[in-house]
């Protein structure tokens, strides 16, 4: 288990990342819609990784737990991406 200081530091980083997501869409003169979209998703993934690794203590568990969780996320991604792709117009 990490020290309180380390947990507090991670908390501050998480707050900054959360604010960053909001800022992307506030600065619409700087970022286009899809730039902001990509940036927000990147920050969301970073936040998730931090929470899982340090707050849920995946760093202290057998690595197979990480693979288990990543497996679930992968299947969600697969379902969402493949389903959505299936209704694009396609080449043919």
């Amino acid at each position: 288990m990490a020290s309180v200081k380390k947990y507090a530091a991670i908390y501050v980083v998480l707050l900054v990342l959360a604010a960053g997501k909001f800022v992307f869409f506030e600065l619409d003169q700087v970022f286009g819609y899809w730039d902001a979209f990509t940036g927000v998703m990147a920050l969301a993934v970073a936040k998730t990784a931090l929470i899982m690794w340090y707050y849920q203590h995946l760093n202290e568990e057998p690595r197979s737990i990480t693979y288990l969780v990543l497996g679930s996320y992968f299947l969600v991604l697969l379902l969402a991406a493949a389903a959505t792709f299936s209704i694009t117009s396609g080449v043919y």
């Binding site: 568990e61 737990i65 288990l68 969780v69 497996g71 679930s72 996320y73 299947l75 969600v76 379902l79 969402a80 389903a83 959505t84 209704i87």
Partner: peptide
């Protein structure tokens, strides 16, 4: 608990997929 979390990820994943799919459509 971790197996439950893995399962719950799929539950939310289906809801989120539904939201993305409907919006994309």
């Amino acid at each position: 608990t971790w197996f439950f979390i893995a399962s719950d990820i799929m539950v939310f994943g289906a809801f989120i997929t539904a939201a993305i799919f409907i919006r994309f459509e």
